[in-house]
Simulated assay, not measured.
Amino acid sequence: MAKNIEVKELLEAGVHFGHLTRKWNPNMAPYIYMERNGIHVINLYKTVAKLEEANEALKKIASSGRKILFVATKKQAKDIVAEKASKVNMPYITERWPGGMLTNFVTIRKAVKKMASIDRMKKDGTFNTLSKKERLQVERLRAKLEKNLGSISEMTRLPAALFVVDTMREHIAVKEAQKLNIPIFAMVDTNSDPRPIDFIVPSNDDASKSIEVVLAHITDAVAEGLAERKSEKQSEEEGKDAAKNEKKAKKAEKTGAVEEAPKVKDVPEKEIKTKKEEAPKKKAPKKEAGTEADDLTKVEGIGPKISEIFQNSGINTFGDLAEKSEDELREILTDAGSKYASKNPASWPKQAKMAAKGQWDKLEEWQESVKGGIEE
């Protein structure tokens, strides 16, 4: 969690020092505490309130997975911004602001792709085929692109917000962001106009200590937002995994986890009967053979098609099937086609006899003890 912002900490870093009174912007009047020795003093209590407000907004943007572009081209802010922004993996501009960086983003992306294509040339060996002069030109171009655009190489689309140090110096960046309705967060000194800024942080934008303290709080909030996003993703993945496992478990219940159940031949008969009473399988209803057709598919080895063939031959019940010999059944199957002639009906009358007598437990035990209803 981001640490609390203390007025004392800001005071020690000199965040309260403004510009000379003759250089002030009247729109900054609400944030000025007093004038001392010809210099305006910023109200740090308002700075704390505004900084907390900006932190909350930036935290939300970071947690949504969007990028925040940090801009600071002044000498005393360059290294600080580069260090703090890279820690939270956010893009930054610390050299000159390339005109059209936001409003002509497609062209900027082309320049970044050019840099990537030069890197590919070096990897695949194309670079070595160039002449010495061409290699030197390509190297210079690569160095220039890296210097100006290297920090935004991962920014594949427009940023969700802009954080600016010194709005007067970075006025082009502010205007571009305004044109595209991109929220602007900025350190605003007493000589700057706060009106174009969406989230202002009234502060000294010239002293490196002041810039470092403010940026430390800003990047802490961004880091917190990124951590929230990471934890949300993890919980989502865990939820998906749990749903998958639950689905698999339900599927296993439906299909009946037969693989885990012990085989009949390895377990005593009494134990088998007890287990069957606890978790009975789907059984055919107990009924004696009569004039109504029985479900012949309950006999291991007989499918719906063979059942239909037998019914067409006058075998409608388990009793009818039990009376038939193996040769008679084989003849019926052969007449039905070569597809069915290969079937082995040897055990079908025996199974049908048990089914006709309603001995379903006995039939089921027998079917489990043989492979595919065929006795060895």
Rank of each mutant, 00 (worst) to 15 (best):
R195Y: 09
L149G: 00
K179C: 08
T156N: 15
S192P: 02
K175V: 09
I184F: 07
L162W: 09
A173Q: 02
M155A: 04
I182W: 11
V174M: 11
D189R: 02
A160R: 01
L149I: 08
L180Y: 06
V188H: 04
L180C: 08
M155E: 06
M168R: 14
A186K: 08
E154A: 15
I152W: 04
N191S: 15
D189Q: 00
P194C: 10
D193P: 09
D166V: 06
A186P: 05
E154S: 15
F163A: 00
P194D: 07
R195N: 12
D166K: 09
E176C: 04
M187D: 14
M187T: 14
T190Q: 01
A177S: 11
K175Y: 04
D193E: 11
P183K: 13
V165A: 06
N181D: 14
T190M: 03
A186I: 10
D189Y: 00
F185S: 03
T190L: 03
E176Y: 08
N181G: 07
P183S: 12
K175G: 04
L162E: 07
L158T: 00
E170V: 00
I182C: 06
A160G: 04
P194W: 05
L149M: 05
I182L: 12
G150W: 08
Q178I: 01
N181S: 13
T156S: 13
F185N: 02
M155L: 15
R169Y: 11
A177C: 11
F163N: 03
G150T: 02
E170T: 07
M187H: 13
S153H: 07
D166S: 13
I182P: 01
R157Y: 10
A177M: 08
R157K: 14
I182A: 09
D193T: 11
P194R: 05
L158H: 00
A160F: 01
I172Q: 14
A161T: 11
P159C: 05
F163W: 03
R195W: 06
L149N: 04
A186V: 07
Q178S: 13
A177W: 00
I182Q: 08
S192I: 02
R195H: 10
V174P: 09
R195M: 12
M168I: 12
P159I: 00
D166L: 01
V165H: 01
T156C: 07
L149A: 01
P183H: 13
K179H: 08
R157I: 10
F185E: 03
A177Q: 06
R169G: 10
A173C: 15
I184Q: 00
G150I: 05
L158R: 07
E176K: 09
T156V: 14
V165T: 07
N181M: 11
F163H: 00
I152D: 02
V188Q: 05
N191K: 06
V165D: 05
L158W: 03
E176H: 07
L158I: 08
A161F: 13
A161L: 12
M187A: 14
T190Y: 01
M168Y: 09
S151L: 03
A177V: 04
A186R: 05
F163R: 00
V165Y: 02
E154W: 07
A161G: 15
A160N: 07
T190D: 05
N191Y: 02
L149D: 02
F185M: 10
I152S: 08
K179T: 14
